[in-house]
Amino acid sequence: MTSALEFTGVEKRYGELAVLDGFELSVPRGEKLAIIGPSGSGKSTVLRIAMALEGIQRGRVELLGETLWDGAKRPPEKTLRRLRLHAGMVFQHFNLFPHMSALENVCCAPVDVLGVPRAQAQARGRELLEQVGLADKADSAPEQLSGGQKQRVAIARALAMEPAVMLFDEVTSALDPEMVGEVLNVLRDLAARSDMTMLLVTHEMQFAGEIADRIVFMDGGRVVEQGPPEQLLSQPSEPRTQAFLRSVLQPGRQAPAQD
């Protein structure tokens, strides 16, 4: 069976700045993959390219065996739209639609895009809200929700489209610390019971170690090192990985020393 995502020799630049440079990554179907690395290493860009929000300059990207990007050529809008249906994305800043209630956020795209009957979409939407622990917030407006609640609605919204690949772009980075846990619990639960392919860009190392089948460490627009979590997190072989892990695992706060 083809893999869920396949990046081959991908180059992505903004003007002079190369964000991805000879980037290679293959994600088998059903894998839970965490991508870690310093800011500016191109992690989020990988997800945005997979979501067809941004194109590339060189190389090739395949989604579920179909070509999404082939060099700088932009596929027709129709193709992009069809391929986008295979993937779903949860954003760092939620991007909930402010003019819709939580439930409408979750069921709007199935109705508008897939043509699911409204009643059916709403029933499914309620199920999903329940799954993320927000059954009682169905009629709330986004502005009435806390950050953690917003992000859980956003997860339900992406799930409603039943994508084969889910992309989580630093979904806890914009949250107050006390709300990180509730979102991670939802993700944990999701990873355990779903066979979806999941890509998570995250700064939560411990969490990444817990749920990921594999961790990829990126720096300077390419994969520096990858492997199963136990190995990559505790015995990284590359000096850059070691330096990065040291800096995140023992920053200058009063946390107990790690080693």
Partner: peptide, 9 residues
């Protein structure tokens, strides 16, 4: 981007 990611034409 959110609209695009949900497949809106």
């Amino acid at each position: 981007e959110a609209a695009a990611s949900l497949g809106y034409p």
